[in-house]
């Protein structure tokens, strides 16, 4: 019996704001009142002790590398001063260099086109597939699981497979197009097509994520709503636009924002397939930053870090938007 009485008291001691409780609990809490401050303080210490590893981790392996990156972008580093230290502080000079670089505007445009076009297709295809798979049919669960494969494969695997499929002379895509009477397209080696090629590969990789998240969003819509709509004479198309789409809007917003943040930083696929080329025609901020820092024999770490930090700022703007949306959804 005493156990039953003490349990609510325990809960109250940890969360003083918790308003409602029974008389026995209040009595128990009052009995423990003198011990409360000491207990609460020790509880707080334990809580922070459990957090200590992750806090140390975040400082050492997140904050410090980011600080080093900021420092790189604010100094004039050469290969020698990179190794030995002592690079002069140059303030925002790396940033102005980068902004006035002739690559800046094309890289910005490519980043935007790559992100927005990828998202539009990933989301539309993912939504169509999610609606399709939510009508249960034989094998639907198995096939839905198989759709995850492209998302789980290492990016180097997907990117090198697509490279070979899109090869101008021996690729299977051009072989199929040839059968349709469309003459060979230089997917990866011509400036007109390189950005399209990496977008196609990226859409393929991103569809599963959209499918899974939107599908789980669909599961939260009560079946009775569809039944009511059907009774009112709504056809499938109307049911989608009048019931599914509005109710899925919060999940859709979250999916699109997460997709946006992830797509902004895509680097592997583009670098492996085209290295941002030819002639910079598929260079985005991520690949530009890498090329400045690591892609050449004479690295320019300062400008590379500056481009990277600009990318962080863009990602952060949308990141904060995501956090706000998520908060609002949780408070409902």
């Amino acid at each position: 019996m005493s156990d039953l009485i003490r349990a609510p008291g325990e809960a109250r001691r940890r969360r003083p704001a918790d308003g409602h409780g029974d008389a026995a609990g209040t009595a128990a809490a009052r009995a423990h009142a003198r011990a409360r401050p000491a207990r609460a303080r020790s509880g707080r210490w334990t809580a922070w002790a459990f957090l200590a590893p992750v806090l140390a981790y975040l400082v050492l392996f997140y904050a410090y590398p980011l600080y080093r990156n900021l420092d790189l972008s604010l100094r004039n580093y050469t290969v020698r001063s990179f190794v030995r230290g002592g690079a002069p502080f140059t303030g925002a000079k790396n940033y102005t260099t980068v902004v006035h670089d002739p690559i800046f505007v094309p890289a910005l445009v490519h980043t935007m086109v790559f992100t927005l076009v990828s998202l539009a297709f990933q989301f539309t295809i993912g939504m169509g597939l999610a609606v399709f798979f939510s009508r249960h049919f034989r094998l639907s669960a198995t096939l839905r699981a198989l759709f995850l494969v492209p998302w789980l494969l290492p990016l180097i695997v997907s990117a090198s497979t697509w490279s070979w499929m899109l090869n101008s002379d021996s690729g299977v895509v051009n072989a199929m197009l040839h059968r349709l009477g469309i003459g060979p397209v230089n997917w990866l080696t011509s400036p007109q097509w390189s950005l399209t090629s990496v977008i196609i590969a990226n859409i393929w990789i991103g569809v599963p994520f959209n499918l899974v998240v939107l599908y789980s969003g669909l599961q939260t819509i009560p079946v009775s709503l569809y039944e009511a709509a059907a009774l009112d004479g709504a056809n499938g198309w109307q049911r989608f636009w009048r019931v599914t789409f509005p109710l899925l809007r919060p999940v859709s917003a979250i999916t699109l924002l997460l997709g946006l943040i992830y797509t902004l930083k895509v680097f592997d696929i583009i670098w492996i397939m085209t290295r941002g080329g030819p002639a910079g025609s598929s260079t985005t901020f991520a690949t530009w930053s890498y090329r400045l820092g690591f892609g050449t024999l004479l690295p320019s770490f300062g400008p590379g870090a500056a481009v990277g930090n600009l990318l962080i700022v863009i990602a952060l703007v949308f990141g904060l938007l995501y956090v706000r949306l998520q908060r609002r959804r949780q408070s409902i």
Binding site: L51, V54, L55, L58, Y62, Y64, P65, L66, Y67, R68, N69, L72, F82, V83, I261, L264, K265, F267, A286, S289, Y290, G293, F294, F301, G304, A305, G308, N309, L311, I312, A315, L316, F318, G319, L320, Y322, V323, Q326
Partner: peptide, 25 residues
């Protein structure tokens, strides 16, 4: 802390790589 972790997930890998490179070097 939860907020910091959410934001941390959004830092592009290439930027972390550059920071780690200079530290490891």
């Amino acid at each position: 802390l939860g907020f910091v972790l959410l934001i941390a997930q959004m830092v592009p890998g290439i930027i972390m790589a550059m920071g780690f490179y200079s530290i490891y070097l």
